[in-house]
Design a binder for these strands. Structure first.
Length: 477
RNA sequence: GGGCCCGUAGCUCAGCCGGUAGAGCACCGCCCUUUUAAGGCGGGUGUCGAGUGUUCGAACCACUCCGGGCUCACCA
């Protein structure tokens, strides 16, 4: 074995040697195994079959210890030449950290007090060709953790824990909504008009139809078509795509939950959202996670204009004029540019108010002009029947009494279209003309909900494979 | 897109007022039958992110590029 070999080359040589000696380094299965956690609960002297990935090895001449890891945890195995025989023991000595093995033998407790499997037989289940990150410091390099998430979840328990919490959260959301008779659906991701939100879409091409298509920016307009069709309670949890910048709060593809309920208004959705998040948080706690305590407390309701007033010290009312807002924006050091009145208000709100909303808060009283798909308040047409949910200073959800008046909706769409390149979804207007029952709808950012419940500081920590720039120059070869 | 910071061995990191690189773990060889960050003896295995320039000489200085982080801007 020459000195210049790197670790992968050495492992590949071992693989070749295994094959030459008739050992299959990649067998098809390992039956009748129990997991490590289960094995640790069984009493001494009982024979068990366990399997997993070798995480550490301590070779001591004619006997050796190793820890193997499976989904449940780790268990120690003991390999001794007089139990295994010379040939098998040598085979074990040639294994590497990272290899998957299966072990059969009786349980015993070592001198140091650790329950251990005394191997009578062992099998290589999958040969590993690359060295794993270090056991003690783990894998810290952020870029590698995201690009090679499999290594991150293998060696960093905290990462694995947060991402597993996400699975519990999505399961809990489904359970909650199904228990209230909501029906889960899938609507198109590829759309010819990307509607339901204001964001730049990803564009793609369908070959056979030879037509441009867009990745959805929201499922909203399709879900409301289902209400037209008579389905009263629907929800969809799936990926939306927005062709915009990345930040600790934004990933170009993200998971959105949208819920619609016929014959209800946004007050219903306020209660539903609070109950749902608390229920999901409860599930997480049941699984051994801790969640911020303010989640379980009373969720407060606050008025948009009142919040602006309190946090800027300036007087804001729904009747405020464009010129007045512009003046205040300049005074508050928010450059107004060419923004519309609602855009300026939104920027002031984002800058001065959002970060202050740390306890769960329903913000109501949004201007109608900023809420094109929401119904107006009967008392004040300038105000939409809409709320947003803020927790820990970030926007978690958005809901409203859905606009179902086809003529008003069309007018709003036409007005929007005149100021941008976004086309009017006439097919949706037509659907509304057939009649959509009064309804409320709710959108919750599942990634952000996971962040809130797990305490993750960036959205990348709750995404298995967050978007990074393709790195073709260095693929690790 | 702007500003600041970062990229050195498989992993975690030192080295950076210029003299072709070092530690721990991992790995390789030898010893070792209850270890557990096993231990003992011996061994650095490297395109110092890439390229160009300055220089007798560059991991180190300059410029460009690639990738990442934070932040501002943008963002329903």
């Amino acid at each position: 074995m020459n000195k210049k070999q790197n670790q992968t080359e050495i492992r590949k040589d071992k693989l070749t040697k295994l094959r030459e000696s008739g050992v299959n380094p990649y067998p098809h299965s390992f039956e009748n195994r129990i997991d490590a956690l289960e094995a640790l609960k069984i009493k001494d002297g009982v024979k068990v079959r366990v399997c997993g990935r070798i995480m550490s090895r301590r070779i001591m001449g004619k006997s050796s210890f190793a820890h193997i890891k499976d989904v449940s945890g780790q268990i120690q195995v003991f390999m001794a030449v007089d139990k295994l025989g010379r040939e098998n023991y040598d085979l074990f000595r040639d294994t590497d950290i990272g290899d998957f093995i299966g072990v059969e033998g009786e349980l015993f407790v070592t001198r140091a007090g650790e329950k251990t499997v005394m191997a009578e037989a062992f099998t290589i289940l999958s040969k590993s060709l690359r060295p794993l990150p270090e056991k003690w410091h783990g894998l810290k390099d952020v870029e590698t953790r995201y690009r090679k998430r499999y290594l991150d979840i293998l060696v960093n328990p905290e990462s694995s824990k947060i991402l597993k919490a996400r699975s519990i959260i999505t399961a809990a959301i489904r359970e909650f909504l199904e228990s209230r008779r909501f029906c889960e659906v899938q609507t198109p991701v590829l759309q010819d008009i990307a509607g339901g939100a204001a964001a730049r879409p990803f564009k793609t091409l369908h070959n056979v139809y030879n037509t441009d298509l867009y990745m959805r920016i929201a499922p909203e307009l399709y879900l409301k078509r289902l209400l037209v069709g008579g389905w009263e309670r629907v929800f969809e949890m799936g990926t939306n795509f927005r062709n915009e910048g990345l930040s600790s709060m934004h990933n170009p593809e993200f998971t959105m939950l949208e819920v619609y309920a016929a014959y209800t208004d946004y007050n219903f959705m306020m209660d539903l959202a609070e109950e749902m998040v608390k229920s999901v948080a409860g599930k997480i706690v049941d699984e051994g996670f801790s969640v911020p305590e303010n989640i379980m407390g009373e969720w407060v309701r606050k008025d948009y204009w009142e919040l602006l007033k309190v946090h800027t010290g300036e007087d804001f009312t729904p009747e405020i004029t464009y010129d007045e807002v512009k003046k205040k924006a300049e005074y508050l050091k928010i450059p107004p540019g060419k923004d519309s009145i609602e855009k300026m208000l939104d920027r002031i709100f984002s800058h001065y108010v959002e970060e202050k909303l740390s306890d769960p808060t329903f913000v109501t009283g949004y201007p109608s002009s900023a809420s094109p798909l929401a119904k107006q308040s009967p008392e004040n047409p300038g105000i939409a029947e809409r709320f947003e949910i803020f927790i820990n200073g970030s926007e978690l959800g958005n809901a409203y009494s859905e606009q179902n008046d086809p003529e008003i909706q069309k007018e709003v769409f036409l007005k929007q279209a005149s100021g941008s390149t976004s086309p009017v979804d006439n097919d949706y207007i037509e659907a509304l003309e057939y009649g959509m029952p009064p309804a409320s709808g709710l959108g919750i950012g599942v990634d952000r909900l996971t962040m809130v419940l797990t305490g993750a500081e960036t959205i990348r920590e709750v995404l298995l494979f967050p978007m990074l720039k393709p790195n073709n120059a260095d693929t690790g070869e």
